[in-house]
């Protein structure tokens, strides 16, 4: 059975549809990539899945339970955690404390929360920064903390919103390694602009264009699809490459 099912999600802002009738499923253990040009509605979709925005229409089903438009903390309890495209690290807390906020979700004592947060930092290879304050980190560091924090809530499915954008080659290579490790234990859905990273990492890809799902398929299918070529490189380029 699928772990997450997004069913006919539609979101209007005023009269404008940011998402139109988007349906897809995520299997347990899978890594699903979500791509699309700017303004395709990727982040809006994540906001609705994670409870930050209420869909105008449609449903979000997590492990058979309807979690549509529930409060974000309830959705986190149901087993879905996310990171933010515009990073929201807690600036005044240390890296370890940032992650503890996540681990407190399943641990009520500070001692246990601190211990588990330490383990998670180990897993995402960021222990050496445990005592740094959130505001002292580089962008790559902040993104890593966001991932660690989300993992510390022990989710069954992890939504990553551009966890690699804006990083240099070495930083994003490290981040890729972290995601490769994590996906062994948790289902991942990730939005990413950096195609050279997403394509080799993903099992399947969903392409959004202008708020709609254009298609889904394996990375190879997507990369040779004329509609995708048209959306990314222009109609005429796609026509010529047929």
């Amino acid at each position: 059975m699928n772990l997450l099912r997004v069913e006919g999600i539609t979101k209007y802002f005023g009269g404008l549809a940011a998402n139109k009738d988007i349906t897809f499923e995520v299997e347990e253990g899978e890594l699903l990539g979500v791509i699309g040009p700017n303004g395709a509605g990727k982040t809006t979709l994540f906001e609705q899945i994670s409870g930050f925005k209420k869909p105008s229409e449609g449903r979000v089903i997590l492990d058979g339970k309807d979690i549509t438009a529930q409060r974000p903390d309830k959705i986190c309890s149901a087993g879905l955690a996310r990171t933010f495209q515009i990073v929201k690290t807690f600036p005044e807390l240390t890296v370890l404390e940032n992650v503890m906020i996540g681990s407190f979700h399943r641990e009520s004592s500070s001692r246990a929360a601190r211990k588990y947060a330490g383990e998670v930092l180990e897993r995402v290879r960021f222990s050496h920064k445990a005592d740094a304050l959130g505001k002292e980190l580089t962008l790559a560091g902040r993104k890593r903390v966001e991932v660690a924090r989300a993992v510390a809530t022990r989710p069954r499915i992890l939504l990553l919103d551009e966890a690699m954008a804006g990083l240099n080659k070495q930083e994003s290579a490290e981040a890729v390694e972290v995601v490769r490790d994590l996906r062994k234990e948790v289902t991942v859905v990730m939005i990413e602009h950096v195609m050279e990273i997403l394509m080799p990492l993903s099992d399947r890809i969903v392409v959004l264009v202008e708020g709609q799902k254009l298609l889904e398929g394996t990375p190879e299918e997507i990369a040779s699809n004329p509609q995708v070529l048209a959306a990314y490189l222009g109609e005429r380029f796609a026509a010529r490459n047929k």
Partner: peptide, 9 residues
Amino acid sequence: EIRKAFLGI
């Protein structure tokens, strides 16, 4: 090259 640059593979 161009297609690769845009789509990663």
